[in-house]
Amino acid sequence: MSKRQPPGGQAPVVQRVRIRYAKRGPLRFTSHRDFARALERAIHRANLPIAYSQGFTPHPKISFSSAAPTGVASEAEYLELGLRVAMEPEKLREALDAALSPGLDVVEVVETNTTDSLAERLTASHWRIELPGVSPDALNAAVKAFLERTEILVERLTKQGRRTFDTRAAVVNLAPAAGPTGLTGSPCAILDLVVRQVTPSVRPDDVLSGLRVAADLEPTAPARVTRLAQGTLTPQGEIVDPLALDRPR
């Protein structure tokens, strides 16, 4: 049998761009896999000069950073593309945004020449959590009970099976936020949350589990969660925009 060689000659990467995108409204139910497929198609529709890996099954040069869970909206998701022809970042943003469904929105594109990975810069996330049917008093009490503890063990089903882990230590900030109503217009309590990126990752639903453990807090309907920001956590507890270092000054 003749051994077939993979076709060579895929053009090299000449430009790397970093992209911030948002997952909004009903499209927050897009899973990461779904988004990855949609992005690849959008790149083809927009006719972007994406670079490919070599081999029998060339893959487009796309690297994702940690994605928000399915069902969680986000204003701050990040990825990096390798291009075989350089493009003006704003043009790329417009073209890609137009090719993606409304609700999957490209917020910002910057060219990068730095060598550190995007993932290294994403050490913390800022979340906003709407809790339907929870009164401000109940929320205040639950937050207080949560913060008084040094460790709160919760369980979650992961790919490795049921795991028990601490949800308290990774929480940098947890506070009731201002705002009388949620996005749906009905009264609900709102939480502001900053969590460090740790392994296993502590997600908003884990913190909600923690509030249930610490204070029996139980919303009447599923919480509605949005990631507002992602970036590098400073010792002062602030989150630095991960694209700040790449952005032209």
Binding site: P26, L27, F29, T30, R41, T70, G71, P102
Partner: peptide, 10 residues
């Protein structure tokens, strides 16, 4: 797989 009920296809 909630996305299957959301629509929004191209």
């Amino acid at each position: 797989k909630p996305i299957q009920y959301v629509g929004g296809e191209l």
